[in-house]
Design a protein around this nucleic acid. Structure first.
Length: 420
RNA sequence: GUGGGUGUAGCUCAGCUGGUCAGAGUGCCGGGUUGUGGCCCCGGAGGUCGAGGGUUCGAACCCCUUCACUCACCCCA
């Protein structure tokens, strides 16, 4: 029979890996809540038009990477390729703008993009996503960036580099875009085929082409900072000084562009070495016109996404120990099995991690099992002990054993285990 | 979608110029201890050598096809 495997680019998170994921999520919740963010959970599927409108019809994501299918009633649905659009949809749909002036949200979950998998890139991947609505102050930018960096450090990451840029707004970006297009058209011959195509599709993308000849062409290109309008300029310089006040190291990267159409003003990205070609751990920026564009109130927005697989790949490989077991009950004989089963569950119900083997195994084999489970104690309970109304409790690290009366043994064990 | 690399035991991998080449380590199970774990010793289970076809007296090894995984490009978290 043909073996059924997981879908390409979709990974199982096995029991051995789950603790790390759990830890990262826990850290995110703890820190984000401290900064005043609330969790929101949104569906992983939306109507296709939501993504078409928010991300941009001509972006790669919408053009060729979405998992889109026709529902039974002929409606087009899409597995979310990112979280921002869904959160904005929910924000508008439930009129969260009316609840409070500034809304600070985060969500954690899977995203889907149908790309060719490679290191740090999967078709189902997980993001920690943060959004702030209703605050257009540069302080909001600095707060969000600071929180991102603080969180990443808190998970145990080092060697992070933060890059920021301003992409301008609706009044100043078009002029810049046009200037870049004009410039590139002048030196089209020197560009790689990809970049020649980009002049039409996404001119700003030429800025981070890796081909050397393109890079030298782009060195002489117009630069965003020279084109920012007074408002954007002022906003960006305030963001920088606030970040400096917060003692945050960052690098200005005027070549940084972002793939999604909706970004305005501040854009930022966190990179890490030792990740392979896909070295961007997190990225985000401001999107001041988007909520309104999607039919909501005219509120500003800023947010970022963190790639969890990439983050975890960067984490120092601290061998997290397996789950702990407080007590292993080694039962010998059928009466002992029955008594042990009852005791195991009495203890579990009382909050103790108790384990036992249900097979008819030798004591040696059960001791091995207890050892494998990293059990603190083993309770040896044979039919012999049942006859004598007692049980042997062995401390697995000191090898010391004591005899306990079977009467009220659950309570006695709980007292002993609580002392640890 | 395009290009490179790799497919042998649950896992990590040996396997020479085609001729005992179906192997090691680890993990799993059992024994050495009539009822006591880790270390050590011994034994056992487990593989259509990714799949299909071809060359040959003979293929894990050579050729073709195909699939999967992986890395990179495009693009992004």
């Amino acid at each position: 029979m043909e073996k059924i495997t997981a879908v390409k680019g979709m990974k199982d998170i096995l029991p051995a890996d789950a603790p790390v994921w759990h830890q990262v999520e826990l850290t995110a919740r703890r820190i984000f809540e401290r900064f005043g963010f609330c969790e929101i959970r949104v569906p992983i599927m939306e109507k296709t038009s939501l993504f078409q409108r928010s991300i941009g019809e001509t972006t790669d994501i919408v053009e060729k990477e979405m998992y889109t299918f026709c529902d039974r009633d002929d409606e087009l649905l899409t597995l979310r390729p990112e979280a921002t659009a869904s959160i904005i949809r929910a924000y508008i749909e439930h009129n969260l703008a009316g609840v409070e002036p500034v809304t600070k949200l985060f969500t954690i979950g899977p995203m889907f993009r149908r790309e060719r998998p490679q290191k740090g890139r999967f078709r189902q991947f997980h993001q920690i996503d943060v959004e702030v609505f209703g605050d257009n102050s540069p302080a909001s930018d600095a707060e969000v960036i600071f929180m991102l960096m603080h969180f990443l450090k808190e998970t145990g990451l080092t060697e992070l580099s933060l890059e920021i840029n301003s992409l301008g707004c609706g009044t100043c970006r078009p002029a810049f875009s046009q200037a870049v297009v004009d410039y590139l058209k002048g030196s089209e011959e020197a560009l790689c085929p990809d970049c020649r195509r980009r002049i039409v599709t996404n001119p700003l993308r030429v800025f981070d082409c890796k081909v050397e000849t393109c890079a030298s062409v782009i060195d002489g290109a117009p630069r965003i900072p020279d084109y920012l309008c007074p408002d954007c300029n002022e906003h960006f310089s305030t963001v920088q000084s606030l970040l400096a006040d917060l003692q945050l190291d960052f690098a200005l990267n005027p070549k940084m562009v972002r793939g999604l159409d909706y970004y305005t003003k501040t854009a930022f990205e966190v990179k890490s070495g030792a990740l392979g070609a896909q070295n961007s751990l997190a990225g985000g920026g401001r999107y001041d016109g988007l909520v309104r564009f999607l039919g909501g109130p005219d509120v500003s927005g800023i947010g970022f996404g963190i790639g969890m697989e990439r983050l975890i790949a960067c984490l120092p490989s601290g061998a997290e120990s397996a789950g702990r077991t407080d007590l292993f009950i080694a039962a010998l004989g059928s009466r002992a099995q029955k008594r042990g089963f009852r005791l195991t569950h009495e203890l579990r119900a009382a909050g103790i991690a108790a384990a036992m083997d249900y097979g008819d195994k030798s004591l040696k084999s059960q001791m091995k099992r207890a050892d494998k489970l990293n059990s603190a104690y083993t309770l040896i309970l044979g039919d012999k002990e049942i006859d004598e109304q007692r049980a042997e409790l062995r401390d697995m690290s000191t090898k010391q054993q004591q005899s306990l009366p079977l009467k009220d043994i659950a309570q006695a064990l709980m007292n002993i285990l609580k002392e640890r």
